[in-house]
Amino acid sequence: MPYLVNKLNFSSPRWSVLSRVLAATLGGYILATASSFFISQLLMTSVGKYQAIHIGLMLTFIVYACVAMWVFSVKTATKAWLGLLKLSISFVVATWLLMQFNGVAS
């Protein structure tokens, strides 16, 4: 086991890059999806359900891009993962609150 740990060399920056790549692609996708829920709930009462969902979807690529850039700009990969988690949860909670407020089940 120690041999394997040495061999894999977990302190190497390569692991940090791999972790960030995963955070940006998978984490970014989930966060972008979560953001689309939030945006659609935010707009639902003013522009109607379908248009609200549509706008949320169209903005996902921009959110995704910003997330990916942010993941590669923070100091450590762990910080990036934690940030993604926090933001995703915030979006989901905010969406849930808005849903209560809007009174429409989506």
């Binding site: 996708y29 972008a32 999806t33 689309s36 829920f37 379908y50 248009q51 969902i53 549509h54 979807l57």
Partner: peptide
């Protein structure tokens, strides 16, 4: 963005939405 649409709409709603777009 299939995950987002699947979670927000059912099949009929999805078809309706696409018709609108």
């Amino acid at each position: 963005m299939v995950l987002s649409t699947n979670l927000q709409t059912n099949e009929d709603e999805y078809r309706e939405m696409r018709k609108e777009i």
